[in-house]
Write a protein that binds this DNA or RNA. Structure first.
Lengths: 187, 187, 187, 187
DNA sequence: GATGAATGAGACTTCATTCAT
DNA sequence: CATGAATGAAGTCTCATTCAT
């Protein structure tokens, strides 16, 4: 199946470019060049730039998701699993610093589409579900909300770290995040 | 001075539009129309779209900053002040939901400029300094990092709330955030 | 190949327009209209106005160069060849009066480009080489410099003739130019 | 008279800028800044950019003309005077290399004006008259045309020298020019 | 399946010029 | 005399998308 292979090549090229520069700064022409396809070829496989970006984004998220899950699976205690997630998330964030920006941009575009928001919930819910279970085990008062906050923290960290990278140590940040998110005040 | 008044009108128009739609979706033409100026007039006051956006962003940040500080000032205990900040920050995020996106976009543009990152540090440092003092008083192990994490949480919250607004209650989020950020494990 | 044909049509349209009016007075829109292409089509074939102008200029120069060489080839004596060149050069200048202005304008633009001067040397050197050989045969003291001066004279003539066309006869100018450039003082 | 002084300052600023960069590349704003005047001030003194450029050009030409004449006056023989002119002209050309380009540009603009050509003849005729007298004394067959050719040579030299400055020595060029322009074949 | 020529709308920006103050 | 805010037309260029081959 030659088409499938081409399609994958396009998605990978797009993901790389979108992870480096902003949605509007990457042109279809450039993606085509990088993927070794003609411009027409792109539109043969994807009806629009937005659809391609969306697919590239989810491709990236899936890779990351699998990574996280594989790290968690062998672990027993909720705290260990939480640490593994924080560890993996923060690492991911600084490995592909601009990825979150890409996330936001695709999100931005999705707002202009009909029912554009729907695609996000599916993904987010799965992630939140895992965290929620962990926080419930730990004994947090409001596991769902705490899960949401950790997600937000990771996303925000991705943004801010770009600015303050020389003032904050990632390892310290992980430890502090772990510390506060495992906090269960009893009183 | 007539110029100053026009300039302010432009900044306000820009802020409004940028808070609603993305940087690339708002054209200078549109800003001009909304401000009641000619397109040329815009460039008389601002050398480029980016500079205008930057000014509009900082105009917005300043408003918000003043609001937060006025809420904090009368408060005595560190915990009260922390709550006031969380309260104000989350409220601000909800009120002008898209503002953070705008923040990110200007930030994005600034990466393309020479020394583009510098402008952020000044603002961020002031904010972080205030938080750091609070966390020191509270007795956090690593006040600087915790301050940074709260900043990140707020930024991330702004993003994610757009997607999950019907699943998460802002008030619950505030409370949970306050809970974990005031956590000081002694053990 | 359809693209090649369109490209040629564009170049020809550009040459015509640039030969009539100045670089800044001719807009890409106008060239597109004349070539029967859309504005975007121009930029599909040429990355910028400058590149298009450059190509149009060299297209014109090549036509002229071929003409000159075909006139020279059958001639034996150096003096005959010199006359043929002067004859052809002055004629060319009169025929396409504004062409030299165009030459100068592209040259002007090239100064703003990196290594912009390089393109001229190649062309100029070939032309100068031919002249130098002729002057050496004639017995000029400094054939290289004299070749350069004849080139300069032709270029300057192109400019000045625009102003003084009703005071100077081209044929007389040719003769006088031939007279002084064949001069070899022995003393 | 304060106005006169301002006017002169503007003309000088304009001349400097136009000698460095092209007519279209120099904006009225820039001239105003350099002259220490407001943009409105420029238009108070000159009705348009073209008129200002024209005045600046003639201001430059006059300076140069006076220089040449002062060098010639004390000289007796026609050959000495010719040498002085060639010497001065070539020197002038390389001192303010871009001046001739400026000349051409103003000329270009003048073509768009009604009766735009007239202004040139006056100046050119004076210059040509002086040369013509010299060539008549020397015994040239066609003094008028030869005068015209020397003018053209100088203008063309200005252009070409920019490209070939490292291949041609100005002093050699002067000598060779003098040699051929004093040539009087008797036969 | 794939190509790449072609489109056309729209973007940012520049700039000479005008005019109220 | 002088200012500088304001204008509006025009310019170059970008880019997602379409379509004949």
């Amino acid at each position: 199946m030659k088409g499938e292979e081409t399609r994958r090549r396009i998605v990978r090229a797009a993901l790389e470019l979108f992870s480096e520069r902003s949605y509007h700064d990457v042109s279809m022409e450039e993606i085509a060049r990088k993927a070794g396809v003609s411009k027409g070829g792109l539109f043969h496989h994807f009806p629009s730039k937005y659809e391609l970006a969306k697919e590239a984004l989810f491709y990236g998220l899936e890779i990351w998701g699998r990574e996280v899950i594989s790290r968690i699976q062998p672990l027993e205690s909720a705290e260990e699993r939480l640490w593994a997630i924080i560890d993996a998330s923060f690492d991911f964030v600084i490995q592909s610093l601009k990825f979150s920006r890409f996330f936001l941009e695709v999100y931005e575009e999705s707002l202009k589409q009909k029912n554009g928001l729907d695609i996000w919930k599916a993904f987010g819910s799965e992630y939140l579900g895992i965290l929620e279970d962990i926080f419930r085990e730990i004994g947090a008062e409001n596991p769902r909300v705490r899960a949401f906050l950790l997600g937000a923290l990771v996303d925000g960290f991705a943004l801010d770290y770009l600015v303050f990278r020389d003032e904050v140590s990632v390892e310290e940040a992980k430890k502090e995040a772990f510390r506060i998110f495992t906090c269960t005040k009893r009183s």
